[in-house]
Design a protein around this nucleic acid. Structure first.
Length: 263
DNA sequence: CCTATAGCCTGACGGC
DNA sequence: TGCCGTCAGGCTATAG
């Protein structure tokens, strides 16, 4: 599920719930998601400490501790946070639970276990290690920059958009939305796109991601002109009313309107 | 460099 | 109802 807009909403949620409270206990339910070498080390870096700040880069969320460590969350396909007071019982997909001194709990729920959690010292090093491309909502992500990183590339535009080493944060859903809003066929190749087209794509990327964040990344709050809600069998194009089609592109399902997004 | 595929893990859904 | 295949908004490793 979580792409850049979703992770940004998770960040805001964490920011509103989990800062400035002492961590009194940590429960690890799924050890395999904790990618920090030593889980004793992991826990001792948390207990007795507080979270003091948050950050996001692409689909990664970072929470800073008062010992200068950063806790990194990756949400995979099914990860999310839940913050609550009354702990009746742990539910089956709780992977990590943090207990705060105010009696509340923060749980990292991740059904399919494709998420990851770790502790790091510096975000910049982490980004370098993962070789992540720029975050398209970062303040220094200009059209000139975008054109530079993309002009040497070849192949399906959808793959370029989803490649985290080229740009960080866009996944299957939002790449489809960007292509739909820019009226480009999902199989279009980047080398066939004009300068004007690239400018349009650049602007559409930012526009779609910002709009999604403004809508709390909630599909039913998105503009009626978005194709996002039509990702199903009977889906109809919000623009022309034609039936939406599906296509496989490098193993992922792309939804598009064959009329508005001509090949 | 680019594409396609399988695999990780687990549930939801549709067809028979 | 039960079983089976397919699919799912993540990423990585591998082969061509």
């Amino acid at each position: 599920m979580p792409e850049l807009p979703d992770v940004e909403i998770f960040r805001q949620y964490f920011e509103q719930t989990s800062l400035q409270q002492e961590i009194i206990n940590v429960h690890i339910f799924s050890e395999e998601l904790i990618k920090t070498h030593n889980s004793k080390d992991f826990i001792s870096n948390l207990i007795g400490h507080i979270f003091v700040a948050t950050a996001r880069y692409g689909k990664y969320f970072f929470a800073k501790l008062d010992n200068n460590k950063w806790m990194v969350f990756h949400f995979g396909m099914t990860g999310y946070f839940k913050y609550f007071k009354d702990l009746i019982e742990d539910t089956p997909y709780d992977r990590l639970r943090i207990d705060y001194s105010n009696g509340y709990h923060l749980v990292f729920d991740c059904k399919r276990k494709l998420g990851e959690i770790r502790l790091i010292d510096r975000i910049e090093d982490f980004i370098l290690e993962k070789n992540l491309g720029p975050d398209p909502l970062a303040s220094d992500f200009s059209y000139t920059y975008f054109k530079k990183i993309v002009s040497s590339k070849k192949g399906a535009l959808k793959n370029i958009l989803m490649n985290q080493q080229i740009m960080s944060g866009i996944g299957n859903i939002y790449s489809d939305e960007i292509l739909f809003q820019a009226k480009i066929h999902p199989k279009a190749k980047i080398e066939d796109i004009s300068d004007e087209g690239l400018k349009n794509i650049f602007e559409t990327i930012q526009n779609v991601l910002r709009t999604a964040i403004n809508c709390q990344a909630e599909p039913n709050q998105m503009p009626k002109t978005y194709i996002l809600l039509q990702r199903h069998q009977q889906g109809k194009c919000p623009c022309c009313g034609n039936m939406i089609k599906k296509a496989k592109i490098s193993g992922r399902t792309a939804y598009f309107c064959p009329n508005c997004q001509q090949e």
